[in-house]
Amino acid sequence: MQTVEVYQCELDKSIPLEYIGTVKYSGASFGVEGLTSGKEYVIVKNRSGLLAVVDDSEEDYLYDLSNPRPADGTSPGGKFKIVDDPLGILAGLVE
Rank of each mutant, 00 (worst) to 15 (best):
1 M>I: 09
5 E>Q: 10
5 E>F: 04
5 E>L: 07
6 V>Y: 06
7 Y>W: 14
9 C>N: 13
9 C>M: 11
11 L>Q: 06
11 L>W: 10
12 D>M: 07
13 K>D: 01
14 S>A: 08
14 S>V: 00
17 L>R: 12
19 Y>E: 03
21 G>C: 01
21 G>Q: 00
22 T>H: 04
22 T>F: 00
23 V>S: 00
23 V>K: 03
24 K>V: 15
24 K>S: 13
24 K>I: 12
27 G>T: 15
27 G>Y: 07
27 G>D: 10
28 A>P: 12
29 S>H: 06
31 G>K: 13
32 V>R: 15
32 V>N: 13
33 E>I: 14
34 G>Y: 09
38 G>K: 09
39 K>H: 04
40 E>P: 00
43 I>C: 01
43 I>T: 02
44 V>W: 08
44 V>F: 05
45 K>H: 06
45 K>R: 15
46 N>D: 12
46 N>T: 01
47 R>W: 14
48 S>D: 14
48 S>G: 10
50 L>G: 12
53 V>K: 05
53 V>E: 05
54 V>T: 07
54 V>W: 06
54 V>E: 04
55 D>N: 09
55 D>Y: 03
55 D>A: 07
55 D>F: 02
56 D>K: 08
56 D>T: 11
57 S>L: 12
58 E>P: 06
61 Y>I: 13
61 Y>A: 15
62 L>K: 09
63 Y>I: 14
64 D>N: 12
65 L>Y: 03
67 N>T: 13
68 P>G: 10
68 P>H: 08
68 P>R: 13
72 D>E: 07
73 G>A: 04
73 G>Y: 10
74 T>V: 12
74 T>H: 13
75 S>A: 14
75 S>V: 11
76 P>M: 12
77 G>D: 07
79 K>H: 11
79 K>A: 05
80 F>I: 07
81 K>I: 09
83 V>R: 10
83 V>G: 13
86 P>D: 02
88 G>E: 04
88 G>F: 09
89 I>Y: 01
89 I>E: 03
91 A>L: 03
91 A>G: 06
92 G>V: 00
94 V>I: 07
95 E>G: 12
